[in-house]
Simulated assay, not measured.
Amino acid sequence: MNNEKFCWFQGVIEDRDDPLQMGRVKIRCLGYHTENKQDLPTGDLPWATPITPITSASVTGIGDTPLGPVTGTWVVGFFRDGVDAQQPVYFGTIASMPTSEANAQEGFNDPSGTYPLQDLLNEPDTNRLARGEVENTIVESKRENLDEMSVPSGGGSKETLTEPETPYNAQYPTNKVFQSETGHIREVDDTPGSERLHTYHRAGTFEEIHPDGSRVNKIVGDNYSVVVRDNNVHIQGTVNIDIDGDSNISVGGNANIVVDQNIDMNAKGNIDIVADGQLFLKGANVKVSGSPIDLN
Rank of each mutant, 00 (worst) to 15 (best):
D264A: 04
F79I: 07
M97Y: 07
R131T: 10
G245L: 02
A102T: 10
G107R: 06
V288S: 11
I94E: 02
I138V: 14
R186P: 00
N266W: 01
G31C: 03
D64M: 08
S96Q: 11
D294W: 03
S58F: 10
V259I: 14
E140T: 10
D294P: 00
R143V: 02
P50K: 15
I249H: 14
T73Y: 05
D17A: 14
M22R: 15
G23R: 10
Y115M: 00
Q278S: 15
I249L: 12
N231I: 06
R196A: 04
T52A: 10
G43L: 09
N296K: 14
T238M: 10
K142D: 04
Y200H: 12
Y90M: 06
G82W: 01
N223C: 08
I235W: 00
T205G: 12
A104K: 07
T99M: 09
D222S: 15
S96W: 10
G23Y: 07
D119M: 02
Q10V: 03
V239S: 15
I13T: 03
P98C: 03
V251K: 01
E159A: 02
R229C: 06
N240S: 11
G290D: 08
W47V: 02
P164S: 02
A95P: 07
D264G: 03
V227C: 04
G63P: 00
L129Y: 05
S194A: 15
T137K: 05
P192E: 02
R28C: 04
L67K: 13
S150F: 00
G68K: 04
M149Y: 10
I293G: 05
S58D: 09
Y224W: 12
D222V: 06
A130E: 07
I13R: 03
S250N: 08
P192Y: 01
F91A: 15
V216H: 00
Y200K: 01
H234K: 13
F6M: 08
G132I: 02
T199Y: 13
Q86V: 05
E144M: 05
G113I: 06
T160A: 01
P98T: 03
T238V: 11
D294M: 06
E187C: 10
V188K: 15
V233Y: 12
T49F: 13
G156C: 03
N103I: 06
E148H: 07
N127T: 05
T93N: 05
D294T: 14
E135F: 07
S250Y: 11
D260M: 04
K37S: 04
P192L: 00
D264Q: 04
P19T: 04
K218W: 06
S225Q: 14
N232T: 13
V286R: 05
N122I: 02
S289E: 09
V25M: 10
E4H: 12
L129H: 07
R24T: 02
V228A: 12
S141D: 05
M22S: 14
G61R: 12
I51L: 09
M1Q: 11
G132Q: 02
T93R: 12
P69I: 05
N296S: 15
G23S: 13
V258D: 09
G107I: 01
V251I: 14
K5Y: 11
T137I: 02
D44S: 15
E4M: 06
G245T: 09
M265I: 07
G156W: 01
S194V: 00
H210T: 01
S291L: 00
V59H: 13
G92W: 09
P88V: 04
A170M: 02
Q179F: 01
M22G: 08
D260T: 06
D18Y: 08
S180R: 09
E135W: 10
E101S: 09
P173Q: 02
G82H: 06
